[in-house]
Design a protein around this nucleic acid. Structure first.
Lengths: 361, 361
DNA sequence: TTGAAAGCGCTAACAC
DNA sequence: GTGTTAGCGCTTTCAA
């Protein structure tokens, strides 16, 4: 490494015996510029030989464009983010941009973190994934000089976002259990202050209401978005109230935690309790029994948010508001007919009909 | 967003009525420069008011230093990478650097991907995580003009690396099963062409040898590093040979795939087959039964590789060669005494003694 | 079609 | 202690 310093454009031009600007034009394949093919070939050959790589800093400084997008992610170990990232990257690459990932720990108390984020002079725009409704973040973004799109939530006072239809997803998951004859259904909710948490709770309740099942506050337990949160909530739920026959978990991680507790308590899944979660990833297949889920288009969220951001950057749009519907139910083995119950004697209601669209795992 | 263009240093200097260089020095807190506190306060106040953020591109161009490190990751969805990244980030931040993550799909056939990687003018150095022994990568790195460290493998012809002692890890995992009385032990191996794959296989064999258990080629099956690979290998293993009583999996993902197949076949874990994997993460706790593992210091790998890279960058070192030992066995519920067998009647041999160091999950 | 020159925002000599 | 100035590598007028 560090053998010879990088060749610069000036080196190439010199070696090829042309002016700087000529070399630049040729290497950038300037349109409407039919360089004499002799010169052209010479420059290209020299560039290759010298292993010339344009200096992104200099180019960016000059053009005020980096052709790079940033994505800030709070929780790399959450299986939803990698998929969003991969989708974003594909969309970025398709339009000639690259994607830089930046891990922003949510516990990061350094308030300048967000200011730095918003000011980043290294990127042309920013995708911001976040779990919390962080007012500092909102403030930083509000004064940002670069376009940005908030992923996976709506942030108070911030216009551009790309979210899932969490209401519909929860409705679909709940309707699935109802169609299987469940009537005593619990909800392991996300953060009840947050966007997805509230929307999913609302969807859960709407599905119950549509089926004429009375609301029971005892059956809603906040679990957050982690494995440990799922464990704690499930344990608490079992302690506090009569056992439900079905569970709608706001996320796979919470569902995994709940399942661990159920196994520890010797509760059969789905024999005694069925469980369905929102979000789908490989991990659903690794659980035992494999977890029935409502699949959300993670890849597509990343991709369409990116396209929106690029439109913002290139002036093709002035705002981005994307809401993606769930893709459907992925039937695995963690849900089944309610024990001894009449499995959906009545014809399913609206939400249940929606849930009918099942995907293969 | 995009309200007013970013304030530049020149704006700040103007507004504060000082020269550019004065503003620069004050804002950079130049040592040995006792700025008159009046000027100083004025400049700082103006900078804050204008929300001045130094342009990283310009600064980097001028100083030829970006105070940014890059990390190239092939497989974001593999649970080992996030932990490595978090460790790297912590170490980078500690020395005043930030970390940019870049996802490099291994399927990426674009050979320029690696050249771009190696040439990156946006970072001061590069951490390269990779699963394959890619000759294109090695070639690109060999001609790189920036320092770099290869993570998690040794690459032929490339000096700087940070790896785990995969041999010791596999030995430890295998010795654990041997200590539980197992003698018919299978290995779900990684990639047998790769560094970790071969080292783990060697460790597995060494432990068997030390216990006087003859080698049986039938019991080694290549599974790679994915869930699906684990499924396929396990299915093949069950089809091809008499059932083992213990399995050493090269990774958690492969172990998860194997466990799924075992469940499907109705094989009791650990009643009929015990399974232990190399690598530890939350996912080990989500599996049923929870997976016994040999924990590798992922966080520390990222951190020490980063420190090494920074030493390279800052000229404090000329090469980096790091090998980290496994942290120990994390006993969970997927391993147990061999059915009906004599549980380690003989006193354990050397490797078994090593395995004795057990960690809490 | 090609060349000369300006300048993106910043730091670091070098003068005062 | 502060100001002036050159120049990092590049793109892009403007002339030739």
């Amino acid at each position: 490494m560090s053998r010879h310093p990088d060749a610069t454009l000036s080196d190439v031009a010199h070696a090829a015996g042309v002016a700087l600007s000529t070399a630049s034009r040729i290497l950038n394949g300037e349109s409407g510029h039919r360089a004499a093919s002799a010169t052209r070939d010479r420059v290209l050959a020299v560039a290759r030989q010298l292993n010339y790589q344009p200096n992104a800093l200099a180019r960016g400084l000059r053009t005020a464009r980096t052709y790079t997008l940033g994505i800030a992610v709070p929780q790399l170990e959450n299986p939803v983010f990698p998929q969003i990232i991969v989708g974003a990257e594909a969309a970025a690459r398709e339009r000639g941009y690259s994607l830089l990932i930046s891990h922003v720990a949510e516990s990061d108390t350094d308030s300048r973190t967000y200011e730095r984020l918003a000011g980043v002079s290294r990127v042309d725009g920013l995708l911001v994934a976040t779990l919390e409704d962080d007012t500092r973040l909102a403030a930083a973004l509000a004064s940002a000089s670069k376009p940005f799109v908030v992923l996976n939530r709506k942030l108070r006072g911030v216009a551009n976002h790309a979210v899932f239809d969490s209401f519909a997803a929860a409705e679909m998951a709940t309707a699935h259990l109802i169609a299987l004859g469940h009537r005593r259904i619990a909800h392991l909710a996300g953060r009840l202050q947050g966007y997805n948490g509230t929307r999913r709770l609302a969807g859960f309740r709407a599905a119950l209401r549509a089926a004429g099942i009375p609301r029971d506050a005892e059956l809603v337990m906040q679990a957050g978005y982690t494995f440990e949160g799922g464990e704690i909530a499930m344990r608490e739920l079992l302690r506090r109230t009569a056992r439900p026959t079905g569970i709608v978990a706001a996320t796979m991680l919470a569902a995994a935690g709940a399942m661990k507790v159920l196994h520890a308590e010797g509760v059969a899944i789905p024999g005694e309790i069925s469980i369905v979660a929102i979000h789908d990833a490989t991990i659903a297949d690794m659980l035992h029994p494999p977890l029935t889920t409502v699949r959300l288009p993670l890849h597509e969220l990343g991709a369409s948010a990116t396209r929106g951001l690029l439109d913002l950057i290139e002036g093709k749009a002035t705002s981005v508001a994307i809401m993606l519907p769930p893709q459907g139910l992925v039937l695995r083995a963690s849900t089944g007919p309610v024990a001894g119950g009449a499995p959906a004697a009545r014809s399913p209601r609206a939400p249940a009909a929606r849930a009918a669209r099942a995907l293969r795992p």
